[in-house]
């Protein structure tokens, strides 16, 4: 069995991982240079970086626009999502009837409603914020609803036997007990909101990083396209790190993962 035989042949898994990453970068550099694939498909790593940094002002502005839209969208996705999740998870009638409907809608490819949004509010920032918020709303609401539903009944019984009022149960039991699900809602919902904003920018926009990527693609500026993708990856990496940091702060009562 693989599980039992874990001695490393020659090098440690971590070393192998970094080696592999290095090989990818080298291949990314060499394959287009050696003409193995057309340069319109793949620009060498160095060229992508150079192109990006030469035009850094444009990229920075676009990133700024995206970031602003993302921040606004997150406020709506988190706020409305948390509220809806709280209601859907804790009100018996809603939990039994509306929650299954909401979780089914999660299966719909939401991109299809974007043309509707642009028809209603145009292709300006509003459509990006609304679309991003819509994308993030569902995972946020569903996570919070799941969290509220699965609060251990013993905690509530114990608190009631000690004389807790309804408000004390809500804020001292339900809320802290759902922190892990709320955080996972923040993480997944955050990532989805980012996807929503960038996708909206790619489809129809006048600014933002998604717009810039699309614009460069239509002009076959392959190097710039790759740099744009690179920036989005960095952006989502930072968002993820930020949320993980919050997770650390709020869940010190968890067994530490090893």
């Amino acid at each position: 069995m693989g599980r039992d035989s874990c001695e490393a042949p020659f090098i440690s898994p971590a070393t192998l991982r970094w080696l592999f990453l290095a090989v990818i970068v080298v291949v990314w550099e060499l394959v287009p240079r050696l003409g193995l694939v057309p340069s319109v498909m793949l620009a060498p790593a160095s060229e992508a970086m150079i192109a990006g940094f030469q035009d850094f002002g444009t990229f920075a502005r676009a990133l700024g626009i995206t970031f602003g839209q993302l921040a606004s969208a997150l406020i709506f996705a988190y706020g409305i999502g948390a509220l809806a999740g709280l209601l859907l998870g804790s009100v018996y009638f809603l939990r039994e009837t509306l929650l299954p409907i909401v979780s089914s809608i999660y299966a719909v490819p939401l991109v299809i409603v974007y043309p509707l949004l642009t028809a209603w509010v145009g292709i300006g920032p509003e459509s990006k914020v609304i679309f991003g918020a819509l994308y993030g709303f569902f995972p946020m609401a569903l996570s919070v609803a799941a969290g509220v539903q699965t609060v251990d009944r013993q905690y509530i019984l114990a608190a009631r036997s000690m004389g807790a009022r309804t408000s004390q149960i809500l804020f001292q039991i339900m809320l802290p007990a759902s922190v892990p699900s709320i955080l996972s809602g923040l993480r997944i919902g955050g990532a989805m909101t980012a996807i929503g904003v960038v996708v909206a920018e790619m489809m129809a926009a006048t600014g933002g990083i998604g717009f810039l990527i699309t614009q460069n693609r239509t002009m076959f500026n392959t190097a710039e396209v790759y740099f744009g993708i690179f920036l989005v990856l960095i952006l989502t990496g930072l968002l993820d790190m930020f949320i993980r940091l919050m997770e650390r702060c709020f869940t010190n009562w968890y067994p530490k993962e090893t």
């Binding site: 996807i195 960038v198 990527i213 693609r217 076959f220 993708i229 989005v232």
Partner: peptide, 15 residues
């Protein structure tokens, strides 16, 4: 898994 894969769409078009 946590990255917005949509931004890679242009790469698929180029390829």
């Amino acid at each position: 898994a946590g990255v917005p894969k949509s931004v890679f769409l242009p790469v698929f078009i180029l390829t």
